[in-house]
Amino acid sequence: MQQINQNYFQLFDLSESFDLDLEKLSEKYHARQVEVHPDKFSGATEKDKLRAVQLTSYLNEAYSTLKSPIKRAAYLLTINGLNVESVSQNDLGMDLLLEQMQLRESLDALPKDESALKALGHLKSEVGEKLNLKQNNFSREFASGELTQAKRIFHELQFLHKLLLEIESSEEQRLGY
C-alpha cells in the first residue's frame, strides 16, 4: 500500500540513481495513478475520498520530482542526508562564478525587444549544453558515492538552471506572453 512518506524511488519500484529511464518512470506512474486516483473513489466515503486526493497529490509530487533532473539531483542528495539548502563558499569554484558573471552580463546586454530572440536562442543552447555536461558529472560522482563532490556539482547545476529560467523568461517577455 502506498504511503505518504514513501521514498519516491521505492514508490515507482526504481533503483536509487540519477540515470533514469523516463519512459519506464512514466509507465509506473500511470500504473500507480490507476490505483489511487480520486476518480476511483467518487462513490467512496469522504474519508476515503480525501485519502485518494492526498495519495494522488503525493504521487504527482514524486513523479514531477523524479522527472526533472535538477529536482531529482536535489532529492537524491537529501535522502542521502545532505542539506542542499546550505551552500558554503567552498562549494563554488572561482571559475564557476566568473563564468556565471559573464553569461549573465551577456544576457543583460541584449536589446529589450524581439531582435534579441536569436541571441537568446544561442545563449539558451549554450547554457543547455553546459547543463547536460554537468548532469553527466553529477551522475558519475553520485554513482561512485562521492557525495560531497556530487553536492558541489549540484550547486553548479542550480546556477545554470536558474540562468536558463531567466533566459526563458526574458524570451517570454519579448514574445509578449
Binding site: H30, Q33, H37
Partner: peptide, 15 residues
C-alpha cells in the same frame, strides 16, 4: 458514467 460507477475507471484515466 465512470464516476457514478456504471463504467470502470480501468478503461481510461484523466490526468
Amino acid at each position: 458514467d465512470v464516476l457514478i460507477g456504471n463504467k470502470s475507471v480501468d478503461d481510461f484515466l484523466l490526468l
